[in-house]
């Protein structure tokens, strides 16, 4: 008899736990305004990434097409994946001195793991992390970028 009562009680207890679970899901079913889905491509305009978000490495330029990169190559040394290549060239300054400046700051986005070491190591703060995250392209070659814009030059007063 005792085991029979236990059997009956176990049925009711089991059903009760199921009903408690159903209450939780029902609560969310009947409060659809709490839905968490974001309609991604449509909400592009309102979608703001956090300012520290690491999307890609970029080199900011001023209106005069000036950047801060001296071409020292520290970022290249710090990159664990070899996704940065610095090509520098020699020029003769107006004072007549020979000087090495940046020719091309090549950045392979496809190899980059966005670890932030290059940005952290840069002595002049020439490269920063950009917030763009839509990087899909049709051709792998498009993932190799030249960060310094054509015709750009180093800003005045940047310490070597």
């Amino acid at each position: 008899m005792k085991s029979f009562i236990e059997y009956i009680v176990s049925i009711f207890k089991g059903v009760w736990t199921l009903l408690v679970g159903m209450k939780v899901t029902a609560k969310y079913f009947f409060t659809p305004w709490n839905n968490v889905t974001q309609q991604y491509p449509e909400n592009r305009d309102t979608l703001v990434m956090f300012d520290r978000f690491r999307g890609e490495v970029i080199m900011p330029h001023t209106e005069n097409n000036e950047h801060l990169c001296t071409g020292c190559g520290i970022c290249e040394l710090n990159c664990p994946n070899g996704s940065i290549e610095i090509i520098s060239k020699s020029i003769i300054t107006p004072e007549g001195k020979k000087k090495r400046i940046i020719d091309q700051h090549i950045y392979h986005l496809g190899m980059c793991t966005l670890c932030n070491l290059c940005v952290k190591a840069c002595p002049t703060g020439a490269i920063v992390m950009g917030q763009k995250f839509e990087h899909a392209v049709w051709d792998r070659a498009l993932l190799t970028k030249v960060l310094n814009q054509p015709g750009s030059k180093i800003a005045e007063g940047v310490k070597e």
Partner: peptide, 12 residues
């Protein structure tokens, strides 16, 4: 229905 239970929108 499943989407509503899971706080989603489902096919849109």
């Amino acid at each position: 229905v499943c989407a509503a239970f899971q706080q989603r929108l489902g096919p849109m």
